[in-house]
Computed example of a mutant assay.
Amino acid sequence: MSGTEREVLLGVQRALSEEQFQTFKYFLEERLPLSRLQPATRPELCAMLLQHFPGRALHVAAEVLRLLPRHDLIRLYRLPGLDAAGTVPEQVAGGGAQEAGVARDVVGVAPEPAADPAGCGGGRLLSERDLLRVAQLLGHEWQEVGVLCLGLQRCRLEQIRENNPHRTALCCFEMLREWRRREGAAATAPRLSECLRPAQLDPEVFALLRQL
């Protein structure tokens, strides 16, 4: 799909759900002024991207879409990162080293080690992208999950909720990041699956964790 840079950026933003739009802005918080970013509408965010990333706005948008993940929009709008066949390469879509480097340089998300740490029950350390994918499947009872399954303090979860009002997926994401900080080298998919097992969650949560 062709169009000017501004038209493409606006088309991408309009294609996102409200939750995805808020998540998109979340991943830009370390690169754009918060006072303008947080209340920004979709057209205003497009203008900010063009202003702060001259000549690279579409690259930045593509990397954030990979983190959501919305590879369909990358393909639809022919954004940077497609291969010759018009698909998102596996090493990028799958969260490999290339994506980790871009996430660090473009949207301020720190890369995660891919090695399997000893004594962690198998699997690699969960990345920011992994946690976001899980967070998008957790429901509105995330605080109960955090307290009863992940052993987090309710006061900390209340603080997360206050910092992200009406943004359930981002609350879940921050909760999982808090769990990962506590677990350290043991923050793997098998370990998270074990912790979440007592909760009555969507089976897709456990199916995703088996894939990670």
Rank of each mutant, 00 (worst) to 15 (best):
T4P: 02
E7M: 09
E7P: 05
V8D: 00
V8W: 00
L10S: 07
G11T: 09
R14L: 15
R14P: 01
L16M: 11
S17W: 12
Q20M: 12
Q22A: 13
F24S: 04
F24W: 14
K25E: 10
F27H: 10
F27L: 14
P33M: 13
P33N: 14
S35G: 11
R42S: 14
L45M: 10
C46Q: 06
A47D: 11
Q51I: 00
F53Q: 13
R56S: 15
R56V: 04
R56F: 08
V60R: 02
E63F: 09
E63A: 12
V64P: 00
R70P: 06
Y77A: 02
L79E: 02
P80E: 05
L82W: 01
A84E: 14
A85Q: 15
T87H: 13
T87L: 13
P89R: 06
P89H: 10
E90I: 00
Q91L: 09
A93T: 06
A100S: 15
V102A: 13
A103C: 13
R104D: 08
V107R: 03
A110T: 11
E112P: 00
E112V: 13
P117E: 05
A118F: 11
R124Q: 11
L126Y: 07
L126H: 05
S127M: 06
L131F: 14
L137M: 15
G139Y: 01
H140I: 09
H140C: 03
Q143L: 15
V147L: 06
L148H: 05
C149Q: 13
C149Y: 03
C149G: 08
L150M: 10
C155M: 11
L157P: 00
E158I: 10
E158R: 09
E158Y: 10
Q159N: 10
I160Y: 06
E162C: 07
N164M: 10
N164G: 03
H166M: 06
H166S: 09
T168D: 07
T168P: 00
T168V: 12
C171T: 03
C172W: 01
C172V: 08
C172K: 02
E174M: 07
M175R: 02
R182S: 11
A185D: 08
A186K: 15
A187N: 03
T188F: 04
T188K: 05
T188I: 04
P190W: 08
R191F: 03
R191D: 00
S193E: 06
R197K: 12
A199E: 06
L209P: 01
